[in-house]
Lab assay of single mutants.
Amino acid sequence: KLLSSIEQACDICRLKKLKCSKEKPKCAKCLKNNWECRYSPKTKRSPLTRAHLTEVESRLERLE
């Protein structure tokens, strides 16, 4: 599967780190437990900047 097509777990399953069936409108866990089942939009991760990478590398060197 391509990364862009990976389905996201519902908010509660993601928060509780449960295996989500990803069914809509309610996944199996939410249906069974009568929880409100919501699927928040995916958040875009910002790409690493060179400055951040350099900072992490220098912190790693100090720890070694």
Rank of each mutant, 00 (worst) to 15 (best):
S4A: 14
S4K: 05
S4L: 12
S4F: 13
S4C: 11
S5G: 09
I6G: 09
E7C: 11
Q8K: 06
Q8E: 03
Q8M: 09
A9F: 01
A9R: 04
C10A: 07
D11H: 06
D11Q: 11
I12G: 11
I12A: 10
C13S: 00
C13Y: 07
C13H: 02
R14V: 01
R14Q: 04
L15Y: 15
L15C: 13
K16I: 03
K16H: 04
K16F: 07
K17D: 03
K17T: 03
L18D: 01
L18Q: 06
K19V: 05
C20R: 03
C20T: 05
C20A: 01
C20Y: 05
C20L: 05
S21W: 04
K22E: 05
K22F: 05
K22A: 02
E23K: 11
E23H: 14
K24E: 15
K24S: 15
K26C: 14
K26Q: 15
A28H: 13
A28Q: 14
A28W: 15
K29V: 00
K29M: 07
C30P: 01
K32L: 08
K32D: 04
N33P: 00
W35V: 14
W35A: 14
W35H: 13
W35F: 14
C37S: 06
C37N: 01
C37I: 03
R38W: 13
R38Y: 14
R38L: 15
Y39W: 06
Y39L: 06
Y39F: 09
S40E: 04
S40Q: 09
P41A: 09
K42H: 10
K42I: 10
K42Q: 11
K42W: 07
S46G: 03
S46E: 03
P47I: 00
P47R: 07
P47F: 01
L48M: 07
L48V: 00
T49M: 08
T49L: 05
R50S: 09
R50E: 05
R50V: 06
A51R: 10
A51E: 04
A51Q: 12
H52K: 05
L53R: 10
L53P: 07
E55P: 01
V56I: 06
E57M: 02
S58Q: 14
R59Q: 12
R59N: 06
R59L: 06
L60I: 09
L60R: 00
L60Y: 10
L60N: 04
E61D: 13
R62D: 02
R62W: 05
R62V: 15
L63S: 02
L63E: 04
L63W: 02
E64M: 15
E64N: 02
E64A: 04
E64S: 12
E64I: 10
E64F: 03
